[in-house]
Measured scan of single mutants.
Amino acid sequence: TYYTVKSGDTLNKIAAQYGVSVANLRSWNGISGDLIFVGQKLIVKKG
């Protein structure tokens, strides 16, 4: 599943929405910090 980042989104918010961990979101998307951008597509695997 792909999720497109919207204004106001955070990794924590997206992780909670999908029932996954922030660590997994980072791993699946090659993100090291907490910086995400509006319009960015993130890979999300269902929890």
Score class of each variant (00 low, 15 high):
residue 38 V to L: 09
residue 6 K to A: 10
residue 45 K to I: 13
residue 21 S to K: 07
residue 19 G to A: 10
residue 34 D to H: 10
residue 10 T to E: 05
residue 34 D to V: 07
residue 43 I to Y: 09
residue 36 I to H: 02
residue 32 S to Q: 14
residue 10 T to H: 05
residue 23 A to D: 14
residue 26 R to N: 05
residue 31 I to T: 05
residue 6 K to T: 10
residue 21 S to V: 05
residue 21 S to Q: 07
residue 26 R to V: 09
residue 40 Q to T: 06
residue 22 V to A: 10
residue 45 K to N: 14
residue 19 G to S: 10
residue 47 G to R: 09
residue 20 V to M: 06
residue 11 L to T: 03
residue 15 A to L: 02
residue 12 N to Y: 15
residue 10 T to M: 05
residue 28 W to I: 05
residue 36 I to C: 04
residue 36 I to K: 02
residue 33 G to T: 09
residue 23 A to I: 11
residue 2 Y to E: 10
residue 23 A to R: 08
residue 28 W to M: 07
residue 12 N to G: 15
residue 41 K to I: 14
residue 41 K to V: 15
residue 39 G to W: 03
residue 16 A to H: 13
residue 10 T to K: 05
residue 5 V to W: 05
residue 32 S to E: 12
residue 18 Y to A: 07
residue 41 K to R: 12
residue 24 N to F: 08
residue 36 I to Q: 02
residue 47 G to Y: 14
residue 12 N to D: 14
residue 13 K to E: 14
residue 28 W to V: 04
residue 47 G to V: 15
residue 35 L to R: 11
residue 24 N to C: 07
residue 45 K to T: 13
residue 14 I to R: 00
residue 19 G to C: 09
residue 31 I to E: 03
residue 42 L to M: 09
residue 30 G to W: 07
residue 34 D to A: 07
residue 12 N to M: 15
residue 23 A to Q: 13
residue 1 T to Y: 14
residue 18 Y to M: 11
residue 7 S to T: 12
residue 37 F to R: 09
residue 2 Y to H: 10
residue 4 T to G: 03
residue 7 S to P: 13
residue 44 V to D: 00
residue 4 T to P: 03
residue 3 Y to M: 05
residue 35 L to F: 14
residue 35 L to A: 11
residue 34 D to E: 11
residue 40 Q to I: 05
residue 14 I to Q: 00
residue 8 G to R: 05
residue 18 Y to P: 00
residue 2 Y to M: 13
residue 16 A to W: 10
residue 16 A to Q: 12
residue 1 T to Q: 12
residue 3 Y to C: 04
residue 27 S to N: 11
residue 21 S to N: 08
residue 14 I to E: 00
residue 41 K to F: 09
residue 30 G to K: 11
residue 32 S to M: 12
residue 2 Y to T: 10
residue 28 W to N: 03
residue 24 N to I: 11
residue 6 K to E: 13
residue 41 K to P: 06
residue 26 R to D: 02
residue 7 S to F: 11
residue 11 L to M: 08
residue 36 I to G: 02
residue 21 S to P: 09
residue 6 K to H: 08
residue 1 T to N: 11
residue 17 Q to R: 11
residue 32 S to H: 15
residue 24 N to Y: 08
residue 13 K to R: 10
residue 18 Y to C: 04
residue 3 Y to F: 04
residue 44 V to Q: 01
residue 13 K to M: 12
residue 21 S to L: 07
residue 13 K to T: 14
residue 35 L to V: 13
residue 31 I to W: 04
residue 36 I to T: 04
residue 41 K to T: 14
residue 38 V to H: 07
residue 25 L to F: 02
residue 42 L to K: 00
residue 1 T to V: 14
residue 26 R to F: 04
residue 36 I to Y: 04
residue 10 T to A: 05
residue 10 T to W: 03
residue 12 N to K: 13
residue 5 V to A: 05
residue 37 F to C: 08
residue 18 Y to W: 14
residue 45 K to F: 15
residue 9 D to L: 01
residue 3 Y to E: 02
residue 37 F to M: 10
residue 4 T to C: 07
residue 2 Y to Q: 08
residue 11 L to N: 00
residue 30 G to I: 08
residue 17 Q to D: 14
residue 47 G to Q: 13
residue 16 A to K: 13
residue 40 Q to A: 06
residue 7 S to L: 12
residue 22 V to K: 07
residue 29 N to P: 00
residue 25 L to V: 06
